[in-house]
Design a binder for these strands. Structure first.
Lengths: 106, 106
DNA sequence: GAATCATATTTCTATGTGGAAATATGAGGA
DNA sequence: TCCTCATATTTCCACATAGAAATATGATTC
């Protein structure tokens, strides 16, 4: 279903379920079954999204007995964060001005 | 080509050309023609991406004579930024530890 | 080794998508 | 009004993608 090709972090984040999976993994590593329970999505559906996340380098798997335990690997998000960096100034100008004011006048 | 439906900021960012357009608009508002010159993409291609960016609320247009001048409206990126927020702690732990060390031992 | 559990992959279908080319629109000028 | 410029939309194609259902795989247990 997917050509073998790397997936950008941006593309991986485009799907809401995948963001949800990452959010769940933020609490700690989880076996697929647990993700299925929490996600209102079929097991194959979850597996497919996990594959995309793997190809984006956003998660890693470890086999533990019968289970596959997934863990967050947030490094690729750093690229998104860096891209976002120059934009932050735009929407936070007012807030930053306030913070700076408070720092300078404590 | 696109069903009429809102586009999430995440989905808009999934396409590299669209990120490039936003980067260009960060310098200031620009007419479409200028974007076409700089983007190694056909004029219709640029127009289509601009439409997606409009539907995501990431740009606004103003008609000025014959030209349509596009401007950045980065507000929707704030949502992405906020989503990213809890992840920042993960990849920056080491860096933060270093910074803190330097602050405490100047 | 057969059965079972947990997960992955395949198959199917409907739909979304990018890019190129052609065409349409709308504003200003001759 | 007709023309031209700037941009938008449409049409076409090839291909990516989501989700559901069925099937396959691989590790453990009996």
């Amino acid at each position: 279903m997917w050509k073998y090709e790397e997936v950008s972090a941006y593309a991986a984040l485009a799907e809401p379920h995948r963001r949800q999976i990452l959010d769940l993994l933020r609490e700690g590593e989880r076996p697929v079954g647990e993700l299925v329970k929490r996600l209102d999505l079929s097991q194959p559906g979850v597996s497919k999204h996990l594959k995309v996340l793997r190809e984006a380098g956003l998660v890693v798997v470890r086999t533990e007995g019968k289970q596959r335990v997934y863990a967050l690997r947030p490094d690729p998000l750093a690229e998104v964060d860096q891209w976002l960096e120059p934009y932050r100034a735009f929407w936070s100008r007012r807030l930053e001005a306030l913070e700076q004011h408070l720092e300078e006048n404590p």
